[in-house]
Amino acid sequence: MKNREVIRERILFILLLILALLYLFPMLLVLMNSFKGRFYISDTPFALPTAETFAGIKNYFSGIEKTGFLPAFGYSLFITVFSVGTIVLFTSMTAWCITRVKSKFSSFLYYLLVFSMIVPFQMVMFTMSKMANICHLDNPVGIIVLYLGFGAGLSVFIFSGFIKGIPHEIEEAAVIDGCGPIQTFFLVVLPILKPICITVAILNTMWIWNDYLLPYLVIGNNYKTIPIAVQYLQGGYGSRDMGAMMAMLVLAILPIIIFYLSLQKYIIKGVVAGAVKG
């Protein structure tokens, strides 16, 4: 009996190992091809690089040059970091305020924000990009406002759900001790919100870092983020530089993998929390 279980466990382990390798295969394939000459990729992507096809890191240089990857990385990083920071700060403030102050306007605002969560981006993409032009938000700083506005729904929703579970007494004690609303929030409430801040930050980071359509429509002509830079390489059919493409895909995946492996525990937890609530 014991022996049979051990054998079954072994078989399952090997099965999972094969599955895991299959799972990693597409990424490894891209990595391998990024070191091959540009003309040896499309036709024989599964062939290992040989002395003839090996191109070293040449593709990386041509890719970085063609797409302007370095500025793209900078824009992506800037937009993601500041948008996420802004979202966490302002939506936690809003969520706390409209959860604690019971009024008709509070619940109206709450339901309006929640409603925005179910609206797909295509519904507002045209009018939003026009609005961005009119309000001069079509630059890497202005786009932060758009992300705050469009990301507010989910973030306020998640924060509110958490805040409802915090006992009033803590805040009341702070008020008795002489705190105003601003001190109460920043000194007492915000530290309690820390775990949920991480969740909100991770969900928004994954969305904004990978977002293509919004930045493409609003700032794509002048400022390319990483997804836009990759899509830009596509060009006309047949004319595209597959070597540069492979190198750019590797460079685009790398930061996410590093982010994921270093914050894995929080990311999985945050994603599950976001899924169950959203």
Partner: peptide
Amino acid sequence: FTLPTLLAFVIAF
């Protein structure tokens, strides 16, 4: 507490 979010929300959504 609400104005920054509200303003962005009105403009963007």
